[in-house]
Nucleic acid binder design. Structure first.
Lengths: 335, 335
DNA sequence: GTGAAAGCGCTAACAG
DNA sequence: CTGTTAGCGCTTTCAC
C-alpha cells in the first residue's frame, strides 16, 4: 500500500502538495498537479480513509440499525437508504438488532466508537433509553418508518389514517364484521405501527356506527404463519367476519391461506386487505388489495435528512409524513 | 468526545497505561486498572476505532457487495453474514451493486480506501476483471453463492446437481414434457446459476432419454413478472408441458399464477417446482415444491472463512459446497 | 505555489 | 508495573 509519502518522494514535492492535489485545493500549479496525479496512478495510490477520518473527525459512514434485513419491508427501506447515501459519497454499516433493546444499545455504542457521522434507526418503539443514548453520545439520528414525540427527525406515514382508509374502503363495500390482525403491541405504546393501525381501525368502525368486537381482533407476528393462525382464530370465532384487515402483507398472505383452508373463498366469502404493498403482494391469488407505503422513499428521504443534518444544512421539516395509498386489486368484494 | 489523554490526566497515569487497560494487557496493577476504568466510565470514554485502525492497519470492517439487498434471496444471505460478523466483532459495510460491473469495481475501490479487512462478494459472474481488482489491491475476498475457477474461496451449492435432482423428481412422477424458466444467461458463462441449472436440467432429461425441446425453455429475470411471462410462453407453446421448473421461487410464484390464468390448475394440470425455498414459498397455494438452498448458512460460512482468512488462520477448505435439498410440498403431481 | 511542522487518537516498543 | 517516545497516513496552518 503506497502512502502519500511515496507519492511525494517520487513526484519531488512535499506531502502537503500531494494532499492538496487529492483534495482539489486551488493553489497547485497545473504542472505539479498533473505530475502528482500521474505518479499516484502509477503507484495505485489513493488516500486512506481512516487517516482522513482521524484528522477530520468525520468518517463519511452512517450507521443503519434495523430489526431484520431479511424482512422485505425493511430490506426495501434499506435499499433506499443505501442508494441515497452512495450518491452523496457515504457508506453504510448495516446492523440487525431484532428489535432487542440490548442489541440496539450495543450497536449504538459500536457505531459511536467507529465515529459514524450519524445513524438511521428503525425499531418498533423509540424509547427514552434510545433517545438518551443518542443524545448523550451526540450522534445525529433520524428515524425511518417510525414517529416519536422526542425531538428527533423522522420520516414515516400516517398509520392511523392509513388503517382508517383501509377500513373505510371495506365499509364502503358494505362490510360490517371486519376482522383485524395486528402485530405485537409492545405494551400498547402509542408510537407503534400496530397500535396506530388499531386506532385507525376502531376510529373507522366507530364513525360508521359499527361495534368493535374483540373476537374479531387477533395478534400476529408480522410473519405469514402468525397471520395464518390469527386469521383462523378470527374465522372460527362466533361472529363470522366478511373481511379481514392484516396490518402487513406477509400476514395477509397467511390470512389468504387461512381463508381457503377454512373452506372459504377470497374475495367471495371473505375480503382481505393487507398493508405495505411489498412486491409479492400483486402475485398472490387473488392479487392483494393493500395499503401501499413508500418503503424505498422512506429510506431515501431519511438518508437525505440525515446527511443534511450532518453537513449542517438547514432542514426544512424534521417530521415528514409520506403519503400512503390504497392499492385496490382483487381481494375484496362488495357484500 | 473525551480522548485517551483526558482519561490519563484525570487518572494520573500515562496514556500508555490507559491504552493497556483498554486492550486487556496483563501488566497493569488491579488498582490502576480499576481507577482508569472508573474515570473512563465517568467521562464516557471509549477508544476511537479510526485511530486504532490507523495504527493497527486493520479496521474490523468487512465489505459486502451484493446485487440487491431487497431481493429475499440475498437479504437472507446478508443476514447470515451480518450475524456471524457481529459475533466475532466485525462490522459490515453494505454495498448494492445491481450486478453492474462498473458499480462493483467502484465499490471495491471505495472499500479498499476504507481499509476494510476483507470483502464478501456476490455477483452473477465472477470475471477476470473482478479477480484482477481484488488481487491487485490485495483484498481478501470470498464469494458467497457463486463458484469460480480462480483461486478465490467460495461457498455455494451444487447448482447442476440441484436442478438435476429437481428434474429427476419430476421425471419420477412420470412427467415427460418439462418446461424450464431460467434467468439471464450472462453470455453463457459457465459459473452462472442459470447456466448451471440449465445444464442439470438437460442432463436429467438426457439420462431419462427425454428430448430437450427449445419451446419449453424460456428466460425470466428472477422476478415474479418475468416468471409469469416466461411461463405463459411455455404454456402456450405447441408442446403442452405437464410440469415447469423455475430456477427461483419468485419466478415460480409468477409461473403458478400463469398456470391459473391460462385456465389450468396446479398441480392437477401442471406441476411447478421452484428454487431457493425462501420463506414465502410455503405460503403459496398450492405450497411450492422447491429446491432448498441454505442461504443463511451460505452467508454465515462465507463470513467465517473470510474472518479466518483475515486472521491468518488456516482454512481447511477453500471451496465449500453446501447441501441443497428438495422440499416436497403440494405443487407437483404424478401424471 | 510550495514546504515544514504540528497534530488527529491511539498502540507498541523500549526504558526504567 | 508504568512512563516516554515514535509513529500510523493524512490535513492544515504558517512561513517562505
Amino acid at each position: 500500500m503506497p502512502t502519500i509519502e511515496d507519492v511525494a518522494r517520487l513526484a519531488n514535492v512535499s506531502i502537503a502538495t500531494v494532499s492538496r492535489v487529492f483534495n482539489n485545493k486551488p493553489d497547485v500549479s497545473p504542472k505539479t498537479r498533473e505530475r502528482v496525479l500521474e505518479i499516484a496512478k502509477e503507484l495505485g495510490y489513493e488516500p486512506s480513509m481512516p487517516a482522513r477520518s482521524l484528522i477530520k473527525g468525520k468518517t463519511g459512514i452512517i450507521g443503519l440499525i434495523v430489526p431484520d434485513i431479511s424482512n422485505p419491508y425493511y430490506s426495501e427501506i434499506v435499499r433506499g437508504i443505501e442508494d441515497t447515501c452512495r450518491i452523496r459519497g457515504y457508506n453504510v454499516i448495516l446492523c440487525n438488532a431484532d428489535n432487542k433493546r440490548e442489541k440496539e444499545l450495543e450497536y449504538i455504542d459500536i457505531l459511536k466508537n467507529r465515529w459514524v457521522d450519524g445513524v438511521i434507526f428503525h425499531c418498533d418503539y423509540f424509547s427514552e433509553e434510545h433517545y438518551e443514548a443518542f443524545t448523550r453520545k451526540k450522534i445525529p439520528v433520524v428515524l425511518a418508518g417510525r414517529a416519536t414525540s422526542y425531538d428527533v427527525p423522522y420520516v414515516t406515514i400516517d398509520n392511523v389514517k392509513a388503517a382508517y382508509d383501509a377500513i373505510n374502503y371495506l365499509i364502503s363495500l358494505g362490510h360490517k364484521r371486519i376482522g383485524l390482525i395486528h402485530g405485537p403491541l409492545e405494551g400498547m405504546k402509542e408510537t407503534v405501527d400496530s397500535v396506530e393501525r388499531l386506532i385507525g381501525y376502531k376510529k373507522a368502525l366507530g364513525e360508521a356506527g359499527l361495534e368493535v368486537c374483540d373476537e374479531l381482533i387477533a395478534e400476529g407476528d408480522f410473519k405469514a404463519k402468525g397471520g395464518y393462525k390469527a386469521a383462523v382464530k378470527i374465522l372460527k370465532a362466533g361472529v363470522k367476519p366478511t373481511a379481514i384487515f392484516a396490518v402487513s402483507d406477509i400476514m395477509a398472505f397467511g390470512a389468504l391461506n387461512a381463508v381457503f383452508d377454512c373452506g372459504l373463498k377470497c374475495p367471495e366469502d371473505v375480503s382481505v386487505v393487507g398493508f405495505d404493498n411489498i412486491d409479492l403482494s400483486e402475485i398472490t391469488r387473488p392479487p392483494l388489495t393493500t395499503v401501499a407505503q413508500p418503503m424505498y422513499e422512506i429510506g431515501s428521504v431519511a438518508a437525505d435528512i440525515l446527511m443534511n443534518l450532518i453537513n449542517g444544512e438547514s432542514i426544512e421539516r424534521k417530521r415528514i409524513i409520506l403519503d400512503h395509498k390504497l392499492v385496490i386489486r382483487n381481494s375484496c368484494k362488495r357484500v
